[in-house]
Amino acid sequence: MALRALGPAARVELPGGVPAWSVTDPGLVRRLLVHPQVSKDAHQHWPAFIDGDVSADWPLRIWVDIRTVQTAYGYDHGRLRRPLVPAFAARRVRALAPWIEKTADALLNDLAGAASAAPDGVVDLRTHFTSRLPWLTVTTLVGLPEAMHDGFQAVNDTVFTTDLTAERAAANSAEAARLLADLLELKTEHPGDDVTSALLVAHREGALSERELADSIWMMLGAGYGTTAGMLGHAVVNLLAHPSQRELAVSGQVGWDQVIEETLRHQAPVANFMMRFPTEDLHDEPTGLTFARGDALVINYAAACRDPGVHGSDADRFDITRPTAREHVAFGYGAHYCLGAELARLEGRIALPALFSRHPGLELAVAPERLDPLPSLISNGHREIPVRLERNRE
């Protein structure tokens, strides 16, 4: 709200004293996402990065340093996106539904067991369900063996954390390289019908460099896990905090797809996306703003999705009956629309009704305002979601 008050885009200072624009207007966001002279490649189009003005230990550096579809421009964007597309084809996503249903059911069994074992009946829903389901789903797509899950998840959980020390970040990078080498060796010897095997084929054919291969796998794990976990967590918390909204959903008066869209709008899973850079001076006629060549642009999805001009004066309120709920940019726009958007929606359509059907007495164990957010400028979620599966009778 404060940034929106400063206009469609406002000058901000990122951690480490890095100057940037925070873009909050949804119309401007869409125009920048499809503009042919706006790049995501810091290696080509961010002078501060190219000239060495951005320190090696800058806490957000990984988000511009990686070589994936998320940081590619022009031809390279299509080249890096192409090997990933088959994994998210509509038919393949739909085929995952029975597996997701079975997995959600098993996780809910485990959740009930954990709650029964807890002396006070309080259990962390994030650990046992809202983050666990997306993690198991994306690791299945990537082809990550179960024996490697814990190691990869421990490293992956730090990717969205933007307050790590330089020493911790270096240690994580070394561990990530070790884990990935083991995975690539395994998949080279035993390929499967998974994203890692497909990326290895593209690498052998010369379509991906070794760095792009490694970064793409980590990108898949991070994007497919943290964002969906945030979406599921916010949906549950908001429904528990708003009993009348919850009743509309569980009674079927409002569909779960609408719950998901309002959650995405109200709590964009990616709060801020790092970064984009004009390849030449760029004047935006509708807003009157001019961005200089090489300016760093942060797409502020959290603010853009709550724009009062689109969603009304109560845009900051969670309302699953909102007629404009689907008019958000939480998954991006145009050629940069999230490949995994429909998979995330499918997970939500399965996980949320399963949870509330199994546990109609579900309640938060703390007030919503006491939930701690993830320590990240990028990922929008909770550290923990303590709940009771049955209403406290005290």
Rank of each mutant, 00 (worst) to 15 (best):
T68H: 08
Q70V: 10
S244T: 15
T140M: 09
A170G: 03
A296I: 08
D120S: 12
D295S: 03
S22Y: 08
T287C: 06
V38I: 15
L32S: 14
L180F: 04
T24I: 01
V23E: 00
K40Q: 15
C305D: 15
L80T: 10
L80K: 15
F273I: 06
L364R: 03
R388C: 02
S244N: 12
L3C: 03
A5N: 01
L240S: 05
R4Q: 13
D41C: 01
R178Y: 04
H43W: 13
F152G: 09
E101K: 02
A223H: 08
E189T: 12
G309R: 13
L125D: 04
V29E: 03
Y333Q: 06
L108E: 03
Y333M: 04
D215I: 02
R82P: 05
G226N: 11
L133K: 00
L184R: 05
E101D: 13
T71C: 01
R168V: 07
Q153P: 09
Y225D: 00
A330E: 12
T127E: 15
L221H: 11
G52C: 11
A112N: 07
V195M: 15
T287P: 07
L96F: 09
I320D: 12
I66C: 14
W63N: 13
T321F: 03
P98T: 12
R276G: 01
R132M: 05
L111K: 06
L96W: 11
E363A: 13
Q37A: 13
T130D: 07
A303L: 03
V236I: 08
A118W: 05
D53W: 10
A115F: 13
V236G: 03
A2G: 05
P286F: 08
N109G: 15
D163A: 07
T279P: 02
G192N: 06
T188S: 07
L141Q: 06
R393W: 11
A296C: 10
R306D: 01
H242R: 13
Q37C: 10
E205G: 11
R61Q: 14
V138Y: 08
R349S: 05
R92T: 04
W99N: 10
R388L: 02
G7T: 01
A147P: 04
S313I: 03
D215Y: 00
R349G: 05
